[in-house]
């Protein structure tokens, strides 16, 4: 896991250096690598949250996790821009495919939580679709509470687990 974290940081740094003052979102090369790694981390990409955040804000589309409030599937205003950037990237290259993985915190019933996770992934999907992404480019899956990134039972653990992960699958 530490290795992945390190790799992500290196990749982010490489991207920072590689992209000049105007980062090109058309160039899928470096981002593809980053997303590709994200797809194989068993959902632990979230661990790099603290290290990656301020880097992300200066870059295009590097954050791939969107968090949600308790019992909510509403995308928060601060994440709208992030999703718009993903939408632009995906709609600009028809070869892109993404999987939106919805997750819930552990409270309550497991299959109902599958429903809550699916609602979240659908909320992100709808935002992508209205911004030009083709339906064929987006798949959704809900893992409910089955794949937590934080294993505790505190409010902050719950907050980390209520999420949609955007995974580039090609």
């Amino acid at each position: 896991m530490a290795q992945i974290k390190l790799f992500t940081c290196v990749a982010l740094a490489a991207l920072l250096v590689g992209c000049s003052s105007s980062p090109s979102i058309d160039d899928p090369e470096p981002t593809d690598t980053v997303y590709g790694e994200g797809a194989t981390t068993d959902g632990t990409g979230n661990d790099s949250m603290s290290g990656g955040e301020d880097v992300t804000s200066k870059n295009e589309d590097l954050q791939t996790i969107i968090y949600f409030a308790f019992d909510s599937s509403e995308v928060r205003p601060q994440d709208q821009d992030l999703i718009a950037r993903h939408a632009m990237q995906i709609s600009n290259d028809s070869s892109y495919r993404v999987r939106l993985e919805g997750h819930a915190d552990e409270r309550g019933s497991r299959e109902y939580n599958i429903g809550l996770g699916e609602r979240r992934s659908q909320a992100v999907r709808q935002l992508l679709l209205i911004q030009g992404v083709r339906a064929s480019q987006v798949a959704t899956v809900s893992f409910g509470e089955e794949r937590p990134v934080a294993h505790g039972s505190s409010e902050s653990d719950y907050a980390q687990n209520r999420r949609v992960e955007i995974t580039y699958t090609n």
Partner: peptide, 10 residues
Amino acid sequence: VTLGGVDGNL
């Protein structure tokens, strides 16, 4: 069973 379809309505 519960089915959701592409639009995710369970």
